[in-house]
Every structure is written in structure tokens, then in C-alpha cells.
Design a protein around this nucleic acid. Sequence first.
DNA 1: ATTCGACTTGGTCGAACGACCTAAATCGGC
DNA 2: GCCGATTTAGGTCGTTCGACCAAGTCGAAT
Lengths: 222, 222
Amino acid sequence: MAARRAGAPALTGKVPPVTPGTRRTREHRPAAERREQLLDAAVEVMRAGGIAAATTRAVAERAGLPQGAFHYCFRSKDELFSALLDRELDASLGRVWDAVADTGDLEASIAAALRAILDRVRSDPEYHLLTAELVDVAARTPGLEHVARREQAASVERAGLMLRRWQETGGGELAVGTRVLAEALVAASTGITSSWLSARDDEAAHACVALFAAALARVATR
Amino acid sequence: MAARRAGAPALTGKVPPVTPGTRRTREHRPAAERREQLLDAAVEVMRAGGIAAATTRAVAERAGLPQGAFHYCFRSKDELFSALLDRELDASLGRVWDAVADTGDLEASIAAALRAILDRVRSDPEYHLLTAELVDVAARTPGLEHVARREQAASVERAGLMLRRWQETGGGELAVGTRVLAEALVAASTGITSSWLSARDDEAAHACVALFAAALARVATR
DNA sequence: ATTCGACTTGGTCGAACGACCTAAATCGGC
DNA sequence: GCCGATTTAGGTCGTTCGACCAAGTCGAAT
């Protein structure tokens, strides 16, 4: 028995044209637009089922496109994956550090920043579970370590900017280098969100935020 | 053309016995032992290529067994996966908190513990990348959240034990609850190792360890 | 209005996968 | 030395996957 799907022609030779002359097609859109559409669809699919769920067929179907469109927009699945890493990781965390630093109080600033990050994760757990998985895969994949590295560096950079802003607006000197403190802040936020994603314990997470803010602010301002 | 592999007989009927009479078999071993063998092999395969690489064939081959042996030892691939989660996550991190707490100095104890965890990760990055992926998948998979939760709770428990041991050996009182401090320690270790796995920056990681130890010890002992 | 290149489409192909099966070979208890 | 349960070796089946194609269609520039 041939392992061919029922209904499909079994012979290699000429297949009669499918309802020739009558073909309903979609609106023509530039390829770049289709690519964004497919990237969005890939995120949706992955959010629900992880990276493994993002087959070319599933992504195309989610985007409302035939599977053939996938390989018109991307040379391969790897190319989509690469584009996704560039687009998604750059836009994920890291930018949260920007918003908060108005208070003169360092502890309050840190607490506000950590809490903002935690709230962002709590509002869309699946998405942040996905970014964690993406970083993980990137860190493992031979040609993609630089992506994880870049994401990490960008976060530290943003956190450092927050600290420098705090210094400039009358915060005063720091007892430790802004670089090290920024790295600690990123590590703290990663640890807290990671814990919450596993345990979903709001109370514990908020207590951690408060404790880290108090501990880091105190050791940094003296 | 049938989608059959080249060389394989195309008919359903009798297949002539393969070199009848001459059959070299392996030693007989109890099924439980074979299962461990397959679990070990699964970890090896996943360590190199992530969860996705662990096909039943790849795992069996790595274990030096025919693919059929896989489905003799495990009803399905899911069953192996489930057994793997139970065995691996319980044995991964968390236990590191046990070893260190001899010093009277809390800061030194915390620093030693964090450094021990970091060293463990540095000595086998691929394995800890894998455990991170496993927790990730468990947290997402509908029936498996409890596994991630349990792993998290076990780590906090171990860290709390370390703190209580420190208290009993003359450490004195803590200004914050051991529970919260333990959760913060776990978050700190997770954040530090996660950062290192992305950036592979030894210096930054060690600086983070020192900073967290100083900050948390100071805020906890006063 | 005709042309031409950018876009769409359904279908096909070979490979790999999970699951399952049969029969031979082996072992332990009798 | 025999016998039934256990273990092995290897093959099959149906599905899904990534990749690719030939033929059709559209729209902007000429």
C-alpha cells in the first residue's frame, strides 16, 4: 500500500489543470507586508504551543495564507526564525527600564522598574514564556549565540541608562559601578519573572521586588 | 511514486526472514534498567540539540538499542518525557544550597552558595540550558504546570534550609522572613545563571554574585 | 491596451517521525 | 532438557514536515 494521502493522484505524470481559467486569488500585497503578517502569525502560534508548534503550515494558516506563500516570503523556515529573533527580542524586555526614574529615591525607582517588568510579564505570560524559549534556543544554536548576547547587552544598557538618569537628576554618587548594578538589576528582573512564570505566586514576586529594591538601593548608595 | 524508502519491500505480505538462524542479541537486562538507559540517552541527545532533537529513533540509537526497544520500555514518547521531567528536574539545581553554610558570616555563605551554583552551570552549560528549556515547556504544557511549580518550590525549600541552618549555628535573627529571603536567593541564582548562559561573561557574573551577597546579607541582618 | 515582473495558488515530493507488529532468540524455572 | 515469558531485531503503516514547482493572476509602467 502506497503511503499516499487518499484522493491524491498516484501517478507522477501530468495532472489535469485544476478548474482552468477560474482562479480566485487574494489581493496582491508587497512581499515585505506578507512577511510581517507571517511573523505575527508565527508569534501567535508559538505563544500557544511553543516553538515546536510553529510549522510552516501552521504559521501560514494562522496568517490566512496558503502554505506556498511561506516559501515565497522566506527562503526557509530558518530564515523566518532568524527574522523573528531580530524583531521580537529587540522589542521585548529591556525598554521597560526607560520609563521610570523620576523619583529622587533610588529604592523607589528600582522597585517601580522591577514592578513594571513583572506587571508586563503577568499581563502576557505566554509571550514571555516564548521569549525565554527563544533566548534559550538562540543560546544553544551554533550560529545564533550573538543574538542572546545582544539581547542581554541591550537590557543591561537600558538599565544602566536608568541609573545614570537617576544620578543626573540629583541622585548623587553610587557606591558601586553602574555597570555592575545594571547587570544585577537585569539578573534580578530575570530571576523574579522566571520564578513567577513557574509558580505564578503574585505575593512572593512582589515581596521579592521589594526586597531586591531595598537591598540593592541600600548597598549602592553607601 | 509511492513515498516508500528505497530498498524497502513494497508489498505488505511475507518478508523473507533476515539471515535466519544467525542472530546476535544483546544481554538480557530488566526493563527498569533499560528505561534508565534510555533516559540517560535522551538527556545526551537533548543536551546537544534541545528537546526537539530527542526523537524516539535518536534516543534509542544513542542508547545503542533498536528503535523497537523504545516502545517496549515506554508506552509512548510522552511517557518518556514525563519520566524525564520527574527524574531530571528533581535532581538538577536546588540541592546546591545544601552544602554551604558553615561560616558565621551570612554574606560569605550566600556568596559561596551563589558561586557554587554558577560554577555548576559553567561546568556544563548545555545541561542547564536543557533544564531551563524543560521548565519552560513544563510551565506551558497544560497538564505539567505542577512540575515547574514543584521544582521552584523545592529550590526555595532548600535555600530556606540553608538560612535556617545559618541561624541555628549562631547566625542570629534575620530582619526579613527566611521565606522571602529564600525566594530572593533563588531568583538571584536564576537570574545570574540565565545572564551567564546568554553572555558567558565570567567577570560580570562573579561581580553580580558579590553584589547580591553583600546587598542581601546587609538588608537581612539589620 | 499591452506588456512584464511581482505576486498567488494548489499540489507534489522525499524524508523523517511516532506507533505498532511479527518472529526469532534468549533466559529462568521446572 | 523443555517451556512460557521476556527481550531483541527489524520492518511496516499512516501522518506530517520542509521544500519546491508550474501555472495562473494581478497591477503598474509603458
